[in-house]
């Protein structure tokens, strides 16, 4: 009997030790695991908004042909640039800006320019303010092609991030775009969309 008691005590103490060793209480949920969470009751948030500039149309300039084999490029900055203003006054106050491009279509019968032939270069921040790290997606310098500087927009890419941020902050940059024009292009105009997304 004595042995049973001692054994029980040992087991209990061992369990206690084990508990202490692995003590990492998971974050207490808002509601018990067995009960449905009420999401109908809310409170009002009084902070500000996350903002992005209203964009302007941009002009690309066709570059003189160069290189071997000859390649044609259009290059230019994207208007007055992009400004993100984070007035949410939060912690964390992090945001990510991604950029995407559609394929460029010709006004006439010319071939498509694939978005893979569109290169984006954010360049450094032209201005920034607030706490945190302001990280351009592509440091630059964003020089005219060839070779194209920056990342191909075959899929969406990170243009700018703000990390380790606290409180109100803002950053601006003036990205540039290089578009490779196919050699079999015919006269006319190409159309495409560049989308900046901040969240």
């Amino acid at each position: 009997m004595k042995r049973t008691l001692t054994a029980a005590a040992v087991v209990g103490a061992a369990a206690l030790t084990g508990g202490l060793l692995t003590a990492a209480p998971a974050y207490a949920a808002d509601c018990l695991a067995t009960v449905a969470c009420p999401t109908g009751v809310t409170f009002t948030i009084t902070a500000g908004a996350l903002n992005i500039t209203v964009p302007d149309t941009a002009t690309l300039t066709t570059q003189p042909p160069s290189g071997s084999p000859t390649s044609w490029w259009a290059f230019g900055t994207l208007g007055t640039g992009v400004t993100v203003t984070d007035l949410r006054a939060s912690n964390p106050a992090n945001w990510v800006v991604t950029v995407a491009s559609t394929d460029f279509t010709h006004s006439g019968t010319g071939p498509l320019i694939s978005s893979a032939d569109v290169y984006y270069c954010s360049g450094p921040a032209t201005s920034s303010g607030g706490v945190g790290n302001f990280n351009p997606g592509q440091l630059g310098p964003c020089t005219a092609p060839p070779p194209p500087v920056g990342v191909s927009l075959s899929s969406s890419q990170t243009a700018f991030t703000h990390t380790a941020g606290i409180g109100v902050n803002t950053a601006s940059w003036t990205p540039s775009l290089s578009v490779q024009i196919p050699l079999n292009a015919v006269a006319g105009s190409y159309t495409g969309t560049i989308t900046h997304t901040v969240t």
Binding site: V54, D56, T77, T80
Partner: peptide
């Protein structure tokens, strides 16, 4: 290249107004 006559201050923003 580019710089048109855009107002540098024009912005749109979104904000959440309520939470659980």
């Amino acid at each position: 290249g580019g710089a048109g006559g855009a107002r540098p201050d024009g912005r749109i923003g979104v904000q959440l107004l309520e939470a659980t």
